[in-house]
Write a protein that binds this DNA or RNA. Structure first.
Length: 477
DNA sequence: TACTACCGCCAC
DNA sequence: AAACGTGGCGGTAGTA
């Protein structure tokens, strides 16, 4: 509102944050004086009234009417429902983890003190760098703007050089997960509902994805054992309910195949093959059955990297292979998916000419640096342009599904609720008695949200919490 | 105490 | 010199 009023009307509006304050000094909306609230609201109301015709015209000029009226506007209500519904977390369970992790951290800290010969703050990268690279004289790897880097990649390379290094890495993981999730989440439980209520940002990403904040429920750990334990705290909060999750399988890669029309990629999806195995088979020129796990891993990383604009160097770093091997592999990769390469090249070229990109639903992204003389800025801009069509269409497909799903849930007067969206996944809390209904409804609507030449695949899971879920079905359509 | 820059890292 | 896109956030350190 503040930005729009400034840009279109030349009016300065007070922000809600300015009105209420932030952090410790924040006050509740009810604490605002009547005259203050009246002026705040009246100024905003006036701005809205004057903005409307300006914005309607702007949207019409830009061709984003469909996006606005058919997707974003109805979605707003769905997101409001989800925020208000909240999700249950097991607070006593997290409190217990808090203690356990606390003593594990203390134990590591003592060990580090023994090995380093001094006590220092392991959470301070600067202090850590002094100990590692000056006191212990470990070989210096990457540097940051302000000194030695101590990031995970750097430390991983030093793992066997000194016994302190694995201790630091363990400490990092524990301390990250404890402070960000185990300590923080219980404090964010709403006393009224007994659940955590995220805020979905509907207009805070450049690609049309949602964002989640206070707390961010889109980055709950899953990868490691400890991460799984944290995720386990997100549970069905009502009697005789279960968590149901539905996620799109390789949606962005399917979109890449669809938009580029690449025959190799399309065929692999149409044949229902595991896409990464199929990629490995084609690139290494071996039969599907002969693909080994290492080859599949390489192909999987290349498949993701390609739609992010990753180059040789990035691929070699991520895989821990030499630049030569990465170059050789990418050569084979792009000759396999030559139509995809053409598509991405055209995209880059057209984006550079226009200075913006447009998605299949009309979503636009302006990328001014596409014409920058600065190699680095231009490179980053081109990668944004390359990623945009896939990421943004995927975002719109799941949004369409959410709007339709919520309509059907309301129409059928179903008890089960949509709780969260995590980019390609929807999470529901469902009465056991409605499980069959959801298992039919959700994948039907999700796969039907958009027509892709590859088809769309949705995997359904259910269980007592967000970590322990069993596969219900995989639906392709 | 509040704010910001920076480093680092969680997710998709 | 940098090298893979989209985010949010915790902790430290410096400053107001």
């Amino acid at each position: 509102m503040e930005d729009l009023a400034r840009d279109f009307l030349g009016v300065e509006l007070m922000s809600t944050e300015q009105l209420l304050g932030t952090g410790r000094a924040a006050r509740k909306p009810t604490a605002v004086e009547d005259n203050e609230a009246a002026e705040f609201s009246a100024r905003r109301a006036e701005a809205i009234l004057n903005l409307r015709p300006r914005l309607e015209a702007e949207m019409s000029n830009l061709g984003v009417d469909y996006l606005f009226h058919e997707i974003e506007l109805p979605l707003a209500g769905v997101l409001a429902d989800m925020e208000s519904e909240g999700v249950a977390i097991d607070v006593p369970y997290l409190k217990q983890m808090q203690e356990e992790l606390g003593s594990q951290l203390a134990a590591i800290e003592s060990e580090v003190e023994q090995v380093a010969g001094e006590r220092f703050n392991l959470n301070a990268p600067q202090q850590l760098a002094t100990v590692l690279f000056e006191k212990l004289r470990l070989p210096v790897g990457k540097r940051t703007k302000t000194g030695y880097s101590t990031d995970a990649d750097t430390l991983e390379a030093l793992r066997d050089k000194h016994p302190i290094v694995p201790l630091i890495l363990d400490h990092r993981q524990l301390s990250k997960l404890k402070s960000t999730y185990v300590d923080a989440l219980p404090q964010l439980v709403d006393p009224l509902s007994g659940r955590v209520h995220t805020s979905f940002g509907q207009a805070s990403t450049a690609t049309g994805r949602l964002a989640s904040s206070n707390p961010n429920l889109m980055n709950i750990p899953i990868r490691t054992e400890l991460g799984q334990r944290i995720r386990r705290a997100f549970k069905a909060g009502r009697p005789d309910h279960v968590m149901v999750s539905a996620d799109y399988a390789q949606i962005e890669l399917r979109i890449a195949a669809h938009l580029s029309g690449d025959p190799m990629l399309l065929d692999a999806f149409k044949a229902g093959q595991d896409i990464h195995t199929a990629t490995a088979a084609a690139v290494f020129k071996v039969p599907i059955e002969a693909v080994d796990p290492g080859q599949r891993r390489l192909a999987k990383i290349a498949n993701f990297g390609s739609i992010y604009g990753q180059g040789e160097y990035g691929l070699s770093q991520q895989l821990g292979i030499t630049g030569d091997v990465a170059r050789e592999f990418l050569g084979q990769y792009w000759s396999t998916y030559s139509k995809l390469r053409e598509f991405l090249d055209d995209l880059r070229r057209q984006a550079r000419e226009e200075g913006f990109v447009v998605s299949a639903t009309g979503r636009r992204r302006a990328i001014p640096d596409l014409r920058s003389p600065n190699f680095q800025l231009r490179g980053a801009a081109e990668r944004m342009a390359i990623n945009f069509p896939m990421q943004s269409l995927a975002a719109d497909i799941i949004k369409i599904a959410m709007v339709r799903l919520q309509r059907e849930i309301e129409a059928d007067q179903i008890e089960g609720r949509m709780l969260l969206q995590v980019h390609d996944e929807l999470l529901f809390e469902v009465p056991r008695s409605e499980l069959d209904q959801f298992a039919e409804k959700v994948p039907r609507i999700m796969t039907g949200a958009y027509e892709l030449e590859t088809g769309i695949e949705v995997e359904m899971k259910a269980g007592p919490n967000w970590a322990d879920m069993k596969k219900l079905a995989v639906v392709r359509a």
